[in-house]
Amino acid sequence: MSQTFNEELGRRIRAAREGKLTQAKLGELVGLSRTAITNIECGRQRLLVDQLVQIADAIGISTSALLPPDGDERRQQGDARITAMPTVQQWITSVKKSAARDRT
Score class of each variant (00 low, 15 high):
Ala65Glu: 14
Leu21Val: 14
Lys96Arg: 14
Glu28Ser: 08
Ser33Lys: 07
Arg75Ser: 01
Ser2Pro: 05
Phe5Glu: 05
Lys97Asp: 15
Arg74Gln: 13
Asp102Ile: 09
Lys25Asp: 12
Leu66His: 03
Ala16Thr: 07
Thr22Trp: 14
Ala65Trp: 06
Ser94Arg: 13
Asp57Gln: 08
Thr87Trp: 04
Ile37Asp: 00
Asp70Met: 12
Pro68Tyr: 07
Ala24Phe: 09
Ile55Arg: 02
Arg46Ile: 00
Thr93Asn: 15
Val49Asp: 06
Ala80Glu: 11
Ala80Cys: 01
Ser98His: 15
Glu7Ala: 09
Arg11Lys: 14
Thr4Gly: 06
Ile55His: 02
Gly27Glu: 08
Val30Asn: 03
Met1Phe: 07
Ala99Met: 11
Ala36Phe: 03
Asn39Cys: 03
Met1Asn: 06
Gln76Thr: 05
Thr104Trp: 06
Ala15His: 10
Arg46Cys: 02
Gly10Thr: 05
Ala100Leu: 11
Thr83Gly: 05
Pro86Asp: 15
Ala84Asn: 07
Thr87Asn: 05
Ala99Thr: 13
Ser33Asn: 10
Leu52Arg: 00
Ser2Lys: 11
Ile37Trp: 00
Asp72Ala: 11
Ala15Leu: 11
Glu18Tyr: 04
Asp102Leu: 12
Leu47His: 02
Gln23Lys: 09
Arg11Val: 04
Pro86Thr: 05
Ala15Met: 06
Ile92Pro: 02
Asn6Leu: 14
Ser62Asp: 15
Ser98Cys: 13
Gly71Lys: 05
Ala15Cys: 10
Gly71Leu: 10
Met1Thr: 12
Gln51Phe: 02
Leu29Asp: 13
Asn6Met: 04
Gln54Tyr: 06
Asn39Gln: 12
Gln89Met: 15
Lys96Gln: 14
Ser94Gly: 07
Gln3His: 10
Ala15Phe: 14
Ile61His: 12
Thr22Asp: 15
Val95Gln: 12
Gly78Tyr: 00
Ala58Arg: 05
